[in-house]
Every structure is written in C-alpha cells, then in structure tokens.
Design a protein around this nucleic acid. Structure first.
Lengths: 251, 251
DNA sequence: TCAGGCGGCGTTGTGCACAACATCATATCA
DNA sequence: TGATATGATGTTGTGCACAACGCCGCCTGA
C-alpha cells in the first residue's frame, strides 16, 4: 500500500547515503525502535517515568524529535504523557491483558489463513536457527536471551503472511503483551524455576511449529500457535494467582 | 487499562472546567478527531497535500500542536509526511484494500464472540434510530448523510464488544477502508445509481442486524456483518473493474 | 537543441526559550 | 494542632526562528 506516495521522492533518496549519515526519518525510526525495544525488554518498567530531556541528551538531539517519537509510542499504547507531570510507561491489569490475549489467539490462526507465504530456503534456515538457539537456552536458561529469541521468533512467524495490516496489528499486540508477561513472571519468587519451565514449553512450541513449516503446512502453524498462546495466558494467570506462595519449591 | 496512571492527576482535573475552556489534551483530541473525520469523509482526498501552516492558522495555534496531530495520524496510516515536500493523505491500491477487507471480515465475527455486551434500552433505541435514518435515506439518497450514518452505525456495532483492543483495531481498519470505498464509488459515472443500490443494500444489512440485536443474538450480528463486509468488497471490486463503461445505464 | 548543473523557493524538521500545569513543601492563621 | 493558602520546583506543551531538504525553473555550454 501507499506505493504512489513512496514514489514521490523516497525511492531515490534512500540509497544515496551508504550507511554512515542518516536523514531525519532514519534517525526517527532508530530512536523509535530503540525505545520500543527497551520498553518491551523491561529496561523501562511499567509505570516508570521517562524524562524527555534525558532522552534528548542521550540521543544527542533536542527535545523536539524525541517528542515526535513519544507521541507515536503513545499512539501505540506503550506510553502515556501527562502535562506537567511526566511521560509514563503504561501498565495493563490482568483484565486488560486477557482481552489482548483473546485477540492474539484469534489473530494467530489468521496468519495461517490470510495470504500465507510459502517460506523460501533462507526463511526456512532462519526457523532452524531459531530452533537451535532454543535448544541452547534449554540447557543454559537466560531471561534476556529468551526474550530476544521470543521476539525474533515472533517476527519470523509474522513474516509468514503477506497481509500487511495483519502483521502490523499482530506486532502491536505482541509488544503490548510480552512485556507484561515478562514483568509478571520475573516478579515471582519461583522465577528461575518458572523460567526454565517456560523455556522448555517454548522449545516444544518452536519444535512443533518448525516441523509444520518444514512441510509447508501454515494452517497447522496457526493452530499450534493459537493453542500455545492460549495456554501461555492460562499459565500466566495461574502464576499470578499463586504469586509469592512458593509452595512446594525446594530452594 | 492504565487505571494507575489515570489516577495520577486526570480524574480531578477533567471536570474542573465545565465546557468552555479546554486544556492541551482536549484541544489535541478535538483537532485529531476533526482531521480524521475530514480524511474519512473525503474532504481531504487521497494524495491531497496538507500544509501545516494552513491548519495552524485555521485552528488558531502554532505549527507545533498541529505536528503532534499529524504524527499520530501518520502512525495510524492515514497520512505520510515527506521532509521538504509536504504531508499527504495516503491512498490504498486495490490489493492493499483487499488485505484490509479480509481482516475486517474476520474481525467482524469476533465482535460477537469476544466479550459481547447485552445492549441496554438506550443502546437498543440508538439502533432503532439508525434504522429510521436508514429508511429516510432509501427515499432521499444523500452521499454525505449516508457516510455519516455508516460511521455512526459502525460505532454502534463496535460498542457491542467490551474488548477494548478489538474496538480500537476495528475502528482503525474501518477508517482506512471506508474513505477508499467512498472514493471509488464516487468516481463512477453511474454514481447516483450505485449509491442508491448501496443504500438499499445497507438498509437490508441494518434491518437484519437490528433484528438480531433485538433478540440479543450478538453472534448472529457478527455473522451477518461478516457476510455484508465480504459482499461489499466484492461489489466494490466489480465496480472498479467496470469503471467508466456505463454499460446498460439509461441516463 | 538538449543535457547537466545550480540556485531560488516552498515545505517539513530541529533547537531553544517560555508558558501552562501538577506536585510538594512551607508558611500562616484559626 | 490542623487545615488551607501559597510559592518553589520540575515537567510537559507551545510559539517562533532557522536549518535541512526536495522540487523546479533557468542558465550555460557544447
């Protein structure tokens, strides 16, 4: 979409500068991606306050372009600015989280049904690489690497549909939920135990999905994913219900 | 969601000023809603250029708050700013439009399945009012009134689910498609004929849906709506395929 | 006659100073 | 002592001047 506008002047200008100097749009995207990733990886925790001036100093720009990024992140539902008070990372209660998960469950199935793309050799190899990374994680659990693999794997799956709007929406909802999931799990006192279990579960999911991708059955990919997202939320709810009890945990 | 943040300082401040003077956020929303409605009603046509300074003059503010609104509209996919050139209303080709429609078809059914709300007396009356407005339109077709009724009826339907994220996404996709639909139809030389037919079709849809709402069968509402959205796109595609031929049209 | 460069013009992007606003500590009075 | 007003302080929102950028007409040379 938007081909007509893109042809107005971007196609020739994007490749002019090799990689070193960046235009306004490139800088904007860079800051936006950085901040969104920080929010998603809990470097900025929910309810944490961000100061425009600090960000401006860090990225070596004035407040103005920072504010542009913050406005977009606010439109995506990740931030909330309050005049005279501050800009805060949003939080979602269990009820709101359930709504987002319900939607993600349905959307997961759509990826296999709406404009699925037959994965080429490169993409297939990327899936196998993800599976390999997953197997490493099972042996040596690491929260941060797990989060990154989770994000990367999500993007791989998202690339299985050519429906652009579906991709955008799935990505948005994913970024909304994964950080809350991570936050809830990381505050458990059984954290390392739960993490290990979650990684093993994730490993099973990746195995199943990669197997389905190998034979080109994208519909099954959707069904597998749907089931895992639903179960993931069910476990999350169970975790937060029994939060802090630490029942039958040795250490 | 975001209860914790809302309690930081908004709840008390919103009701302090009765209605006459407006804070920053209120002004922002007003300008945003105005521009979005203009885009949706084709007051700003696709590919049309908007000048920040003109908008600033019209709304009696500087370019700064205008730019905030434009950034948000760009994030929603309705605008596209190009440095040194201008800000343009986006256009969607038939392929992109099909993707959005495919998604809307699926989402329509979800409204009846995810957190449906039993409509109260007030809401029910609103549905009956919409049906009445529709019956007036069948007699006296009017493009603008039809667009408004279409938007209002969409919001009524969207209110039938309590799933906030689903509402947001449906609304976003609706605003993306309805203006392209209107643009395509209005450029036909059989315009008035097609409009009349579309209004009659819409009248049948509203009748069916209101009947389903009356007996509280929201699942059926979703199914009816799904069918009508799909057929609407099929007709749209047929229109643009036979655009300008004017076959078997008397006048 | 035409190809290529170059400079004016209009638009969006940026930096900076100040206004508007919310919060909190302090003072002041009953 | 307590409650209320009030100013200090820090934050986001706004206005304005200028920079960066793209487009287009003109000019120059072959």
């Amino acid at each position: 979409m938007m081909e007509t506008i893109r042809s107005l002047g971007e196609s020739g200008a994007d490749l002019r500068a090799p990689a070193v100097e960046e235009g306004a749009r490139r800088r904007f995207d860079r800051i936006y991606d950085t901040l969104r990733m920080r929010i998603c990886l809990l470097e900025y925790q929910p309810l944490e306050r961000l100061r425009e001036e600090d960000l401006a100093a860090e990225f070596k720009v004035s407040r103005t372009p920072i504010r542009r990024v913050l406005v977009k992140l606010e439109a995506e539902g990740l931030l909330r600015s309050v005049h005279g008070v501050g800009t805060f990372v949003t939080d979602i209660d269990i009820r709101g989280l359930e709504q987002v998960y319900q939607l993600r469950v349905e959307l997961a199935e759509l990826i296999g049904r709406l404009a699925p793309v037959k994965p080429d050799a490169t993409r297939l190899q990327a899936f196998r690489d993800a599976l390999a990374r997953c197997e490493v994680l099972v042996v040596t659990p690491e929260p941060r690497d797990f989060s990154r693999l989770n994000i990367d794997f999500f993007h791989l799956l998202n690339g299985l549909t050519e429906n652009g709007p579906l991709r955008e929406i799935s990505e948005r909802l994913y970024f909304q939920t994964t950080r809350i999931w991570l936050k809830t799990v990381s505050t458990l006192n059984r954290f390392s135990l739960v993490l290990h279990e979650e990684i093993r579960t994730f490993h099973r999911e990746v195995s199943d999905i990669v197997a389905a991708v190998e034979i080109g059955d994208l519909q099954s990919v959707g069904h597998i994913r749907r089931a895992h997202i639903a179960m993931s939320f069910a476990r999350l709810r169970a975790y937060s219900a029994g939060r802090g009890t630490g029942e039958d945990v040795p250490s």
